[in-house]
Simulated scan of single mutants.
Amino acid sequence: MNLNCMGQFPEYRPRRLRQFPALRRMISETRLSADQLVLPLFARAGRKLRKPINAMPGVFQLSLDELLREATQAFEAGVPAVLLFGIPEKKDAKASGAYASNGIVQQAVRLLKKELPELLIITDVCLCEYMAHGHCGIVHHSKNRTRILNDPTLKLLARSAASHAEAGADIIAPSDMMDGRIQAIRTELDRLGFDETPIMSYAAKFASAFYGPFREAAESAPQFGDRRSYQMDAGNTNEALREVALDIQEGADMVMVKPALAYLDILHRVKTEFGYPTAAYAVSGEYSMIKAAAANGWVDEKAVTLESLLAMRRAGADIIITYSATDAARWLREK
């Protein structure tokens, strides 16, 4: 910005352009639209089941009939897409529920594509919800060390992604943070004829304290240790850019920064430096903090939610994944 071309007070008065609502809307630099929102949903077996998530007011684990109802309400409010997570009935050391043809996510995809064909279906590809130990990869225990095995995990991730595509998923979203997973998934999808199925990579996913409520929702807390050997250190910016570059080279069509609000600087750099379609995940901790503050009367939930989502847009997000998607779409329509 060339500040030398600007006038000075009293000739230049920025408030002249803030006097009227219509004028403020006309010159608004950043706009938030329901078209940019994605609603995460948690599917589990059962019927007429809406199991509340204590740490996330208004969010539920949903049986398929209730999931369809929730997705329909979101779509009718103007939300064009959902992101599906699954809670299996049984977990094991091979995450077999993640790639089972009749797995809970696969069932949810088929139901939604049948009943809401215009709704965009994104599926999260990870193993943590399906592993008995809660980690995102195959675990190897030795006498002195426990490791998450990278390369053997890639085969299971690729198999899971393929099963989602076969069920009818529109977009595959790997969130595991194993090295090389985008290449493995892209290769498998192409081999099976799903070369037109795009990949939205959780490219810069940080080991964040903001994920706490999600782990209750997805029943995915690790049973030992933590995820810092595969998710990124919160202080690293350049590493995030390298991760994004690698995923793009391996075939990612869209990239994601997670979490969003505490990582707006990363989001801005990713969008500026790569120019790829970029998603921001407004994670569970961000959602729950606003809900808790609003419940205590400390903030206006609607105003704070929309302002935080607008900040993500301003930083460079083309797509925003948020648990407030349905409410936000309705608020935007009213506005």
Rank of each mutant, 00 (worst) to 15 (best):
G137R: 04
K114W: 12
T278F: 04
F75N: 03
R269Q: 15
A169C: 03
T146K: 07
S229Q: 14
K205W: 01
R333M: 05
D35T: 15
R44A: 08
F206T: 10
A280D: 14
A43C: 11
D195V: 07
S28Q: 14
L64P: 08
I266D: 14
L62V: 06
I248M: 11
A234S: 14
E166P: 01
M177W: 04
G297V: 01
I199M: 00
D265G: 07
K335F: 03
I321C: 04
R145T: 15
G46F: 01
K114S: 10
A329P: 10
H140Q: 12
F60G: 00
P88N: 06
L189G: 02
Q231Y: 13
Y281P: 03
E307I: 12
T72S: 15
R18Q: 12
H133G: 05
G78N: 03
T322S: 12
F224K: 08
L62P: 05
A22N: 02
S208D: 01
F60C: 13
E307K: 09
L112F: 11
S63L: 09
A252G: 04
S229A: 14
K335C: 06
K51Y: 10
K51G: 00
V38W: 07
L23W: 15
R44L: 13
P88R: 08
E273F: 15
D327V: 00
V270A: 12
L32Q: 08
